[in-house]
Amino acid sequence: MSTDQTEGTHKKPTEPIQAVPVRHPGRWIGVGVIAIFAAMFVNSLLTNPNWGWPLIGEWIFSPPILKGVGVTLLLTFLAMLLGLALGVLIAIMRLSPNPVMSGSAWVFVWVFRGTPVYVQLFLWGSIIALYQRISLGIPFGPEMISFDTKTLIPAFVAALLGLGLNEAAYMSEIVRAGILSVDEGQEEAATALGMSRLQTLRHIVLPQAMRVIVPPTGNETISMLKTTSLVIAIPLTTELFFQAQVIGNRLFQPFPMAIMASIWYLALTSVLMVGQYYIERYYAKGAMRELPPTPIQKLKARLGRGGDDE
């Protein structure tokens, strides 16, 4: 559209329509109200000293916090990996015609989805304390080798197990829904080509199920990133939020430090959201005739054509 034409001038029927758009006065009032509240909030953020911005600036890149961010990220990544791998396995077991397979998968989901993750983490922590030593040998006979579980299952592994197994229960339901969403004809066609059950699953069914699996998995990852703040139940103390609390308590300034932790969480989840966008796009292949351009592609197209509309 070129702007030199007057809006609403109607010339010949063959020309593009230049109609006056509908006015929305209600929207403008809403925008005004939101703008006022936003301005008040920003004003308070900047002028009220209780937010402790200088303190946040001082600590946000401090070594214990950076290490906490690292532990949180590593825990999120590994727990999701464990959850996804185990979740796929349990989903496949759940769909197996063998009742022992599907039954045990059902029990797993029942237990791990039916109890709070905080309680599960506490229990994993206690199991370390309970079995201080694991010994290998003849039952009731002489002990041959023994391990100190404090070193065998350090708190990090307990956290990983707690978060990963809980996640597996949720992921298995997501994966199962994904597998069930794939048209039966797909399995039939693959089988008719001579593929085994496993080959069909790996090459035909799962790649198509991914379209259904990826969006909720993105949500699960974001959720996991935040859930890592519960591993103090084990206790695992190196994670981000606990570290922020430790510093906050030491300085008698818990509030700014919690805000600082929130800023980190927000930054990390934002990065995850961008990643999720591109992964979803990748798995939409073949489901859409043409993929819509990414925001960056749109920007490039605009800049490249000097802001010209098509």
Binding site: G185, A189, A192, I204, G286
Partner: peptide
């Protein structure tokens, strides 16, 4: 099955390929 080819009413092509 490998020596028997089958063509279906609804094609059943693999959409992701």
């Amino acid at each position: 099955r490998r020596s028997i080819g089958m063509v279906f009413q609804r094609f059943n092509l693999f959409p992701h390929m």
